[in-house]
Computed example of a mutant assay.
Amino acid sequence: MISRNLPILLSGVLFGAGLTLGGMTDPARVRGFLNLFGDWDPTLAFVMGGAVIVMAIAWQLQPKLARPIFADTFALPSRRDLTPRLIGGSALFGIGWGVAGLCPGPGIAALVIEPISAAIFVAAMLAGMFLIRLTEGNA
């Protein structure tokens, strides 16, 4: 069980370290990126650009692979995955990201750097996750 979860753990640690190094655990930096008409901070654009480059390479490599290394099949999105629930959740995510300056990955990584303020965000995030499960009957 540990050997199967080790790549997941290492990926999460690498992701968190990258977010921290890129300054994405600083809500002021994220808000600075979203402030297009004020003191705009382009740092997040470089982080997003790096992610787009990695994903573009992955999309080119995927058809040449028989199967993923750590799974039986690839789980690729389709247009049927674009539902009103996904669109609404994305809008809510964006609003929360703009207000708090954090999203789930950086919020969890920020627990190490600024535990008090990040804990408030993470608690609110977990409460939202619980509420959606409760309202959809999946609790």
Rank of each mutant, 00 (worst) to 15 (best):
L61W: 13
C103E: 12
G18Q: 05
G32H: 01
D81G: 13
G22W: 04
L131I: 12
L34N: 04
G137M: 09
L9C: 02
T73N: 12
R133M: 12
I113A: 06
I2S: 07
T135K: 04
L92Y: 01
L134A: 10
T135P: 03
F74K: 14
G101C: 03
L92K: 01
R85K: 14
P106W: 02
S90W: 09
A58R: 12
R85T: 14
Q62S: 07
L82C: 13
I8V: 12
V30M: 12
N138C: 06
R133Y: 09
M1L: 03
I132H: 07
A123P: 06
V122D: 08
I95Y: 08
I132A: 03
S3F: 09
M129Q: 05
P63E: 15
Q60I: 10
V99F: 06
S117H: 03
D39G: 01
A123D: 08
T83D: 12
P42R: 11
T83C: 12
V122G: 02
A56Q: 08
M48K: 01
I116C: 03
A139G: 08
I132Y: 09
W59S: 08
T73I: 13
F74G: 10
R31F: 12
A124W: 01
M1D: 01
V54M: 07
P42H: 06
P27L: 15
I53A: 09
I69D: 11
R80L: 13
M129I: 03
G88C: 08
L86A: 15
G105D: 05
I113G: 06
A58T: 03
T43C: 06
F37T: 10
A45S: 15
D72G: 11
S3L: 10
G128F: 07
M1S: 00
A71Y: 04
M125D: 11
P106A: 01
T73P: 00
L134V: 07
F37P: 02
P104Q: 13
M24V: 10
P115W: 05
L36H: 00
G88M: 02
L44R: 05
I108G: 06
A58C: 01
N35W: 06
I57L: 14
L102Y: 00
G128R: 04
Q60S: 14
L21V: 14
G94N: 04
M24S: 04
T25N: 13
T43V: 13
Q60V: 11
W40F: 13
R67T: 05
G96P: 06
R80S: 15
M1V: 00
A51W: 13
G98K: 04
F70P: 01
S78W: 07
A28W: 02
P115I: 02
L61A: 14
C103Y: 12
A58G: 00
G23C: 04
L82R: 12
T43D: 07
A109E: 06
I95N: 03
R31Y: 05
A100C: 03
A56R: 01
D81M: 14
F70H: 14
R31A: 11
V122S: 03
V30C: 07
G49F: 07
L126Y: 04
S90Q: 09
G89T: 08
A123T: 10
L82D: 04
I87H: 05
F130V: 07
L14G: 11
T73F: 11
T43M: 11
L126M: 15
L10P: 05
L65A: 15
M48D: 02
P84Y: 11
D81H: 15
I87A: 14
P68L: 11
L36Y: 00
R67E: 10
L21M: 13
